[in-house]
């Protein structure tokens, strides 16, 4: 595993918020019929959560859990080293059901924006209402950051995590750091 090289390494930037590339993380795409017998149980067991997340919800504990992606798609988050094994076990558990499990840990990059202005950094880039009344921890939003697709969720009231495709990591990091440059406080929220 020493050869694992994420797109942005340990890049970080301190401006009006702290922007950092997160280390390699396990991410597994799961597609299936949420209401199918056994589906929820198998997926929850794999993710270590009690229940599937509702529409646009997250269920994360200790860096592990599930994100709602679409009515038939979930994203399982786990340790990078556990992703292959978890995906394989889940696929086995779902055998006989119509479902798709794919390890996409290397296909995506994760970033974190932290600080009082974290919401503003996102609101400069995404057509998403980042007001606390509209978006907060426990929710996930798929949208775009400037010109590329991204998923956004908050782990606490001042921490936003962002997932994008690996190939555009440098672009997304550039977007986030540019938006977090000093003097860029909007004072809107």
């Amino acid at each position: 595993m020493s050869d694992v090289k994420t797109a942005m390494g340990a890049a970080q930037f301190e401006g009006i918020a702290k922007v950092e590339a997160l280390p390699a993380t396990g991410m597994i795409t799961i597609r299936g019929t949420f209401s199918d017998a056994g589906f929820g149980k198998a997926v929850c067991a794999a993710a270590g959560v009690e229940a599937l997340p509702g529409v646009r919800e997250t269920r994360l504990t200790g860096g592990k859990g599930l994100l709602w992606m679409s009515p038939d798609e979930l994203l399982l988050i786990c340790a990078y080293s556990a992703a292959d094994r978890t995906a394989h076990q889940l696929a086995e558990a779902l055998k006989g059901q119509h479902a798709l499990v794919a390890n996409v840990s290397d296909a995506r990059s994760l970033f974190q924006v932290q600080g009082r202005n974290a919401r503003e950094i996102i609101a400069k880039l995404a057509p998403v209402d980042m007001a606390p009344s509209a978006f907060g921890p426990g929710m996930v939003r798929r949208s775009r950051l400037a010109q590329v697709p991204a998923a956004i969720w908050m782990t606490d009231s001042s921490t936003v995590q962002i997932m994008c495709f690996r190939s555009v990591s440098e672009y997304v990091y550039g977007l986030l750091t540019t938006s977090a440059e000093l003097g860029g406080e909007v004072g809107y929220y």
Binding site: K124, L125, A146, Q147, V168, L175
Partner: peptide, 16 residues
């Protein structure tokens, strides 16, 4: 143009 200038004028996709 907003932020879209210089290095982030448009996304460049990079292979590993």
């Amino acid at each position: 143009a907003g932020e879209a200038r210089g290095e982030i004028f448009q996304p460049l996709r990079r292979t590993p």
